[in-house]
Design a protein around this nucleic acid. Structure first.
Lengths: 129, 129
DNA sequence: CGGCAATGTTTACATTCGTAATCGTGGTGA
DNA sequence: TCACCACGATTACGAATGTAAACATTGCCG
């Protein structure tokens, strides 16, 4: 496993991520369909989406299933795996791999409302059962 | 506030982040000192560190305090602010801004050991007091 | 005093990313 | 049939990034 990481190795960029989200939400879409979802909010042209789709296929993040003379694109990597990887990267980089530190930070400094805290507490109770 | 974001606007890259960490850990270091910390693990040359330091100063992330004919570099932005921003970015991008989802994900899928869960639970109890 | 070592500054260069335009090709409606 | 359109593939191109060498300056050792 020295190299040639398949289907999970290459990093997905910010722009690409928007495309992935569209396809996680609904797999097997054409370039035009994806564009109909992401082009307007991001101010992209169809061409841009095509480029991103190609790059994602190259990276092994998407599969392109032939459908006549076009392709239906579908994520190869699961969203969960992706966000898991990204989360871990953040935790590793900024919190020395200690996820609890991240939670602590979020809680103390900004992101967690009392409501969030309740949610998490409930979650924890469940997980620690 | 149209542009010229000072001291927090420009994004800090991965490589730059390593330099920042060294200076958050101990402020007021020279380029050579920073290099003595980061060059070996990252396989960098002193020149690389110099470039990164310059870029960080330009970005307003570091202050360069003259010390004779060299500079002592010191973070302008606090580590907390940085990791807060990065954490928020992640939460926004991957969890629709809902930090509790991130915690849920970490807990369910991979990053949290039972020990972490205990830590977080303790933390929460404290915060919700 | 003169050259070297240390330092910041400038310049360099390959890669990746964001964002497209253009090209080639094959189906399709008139 | 034929002009055109829908698509993927190829090419483009500037900005950012990673990584560094070359250059300029200046204090210091010999």
């Amino acid at each position: 496993m020295t190299q040639s990481d398949d289907s999970a190795g290459e990093r997905i960029t910010d722009a690409e991520h928007a495309v992935m989200e569209a396809l996680w939400d609904r797999p097997r879409q054409t370039a035009a369909e994806v564009c109909s979802i992401v082009c307007t909010p991001r101010g992209w042209s169809l061409a841009t989406v095509k480029t991103l789709l190609s790059r994602l296929v190259q990276k092994g993040a998407l599969a392109a299933e032939p459908d006549g003379r076009r392709f239906l694109y579908t994520p190869v990597i699961a969203r969960d795996a992706y966000i898991g990887g990204e989360s871990r990267r953040l935790v590793d980089r900024l919190f020395g791999g200690n996820a609890a530190s991240l939670v602590a930070h979020l809680a103390e400094r900004e992101a967690l409302s009392p409501d969030d805290l309740d949610q998490i507490a409930a979650l924890l109770k469940e997980l620690r059962a």
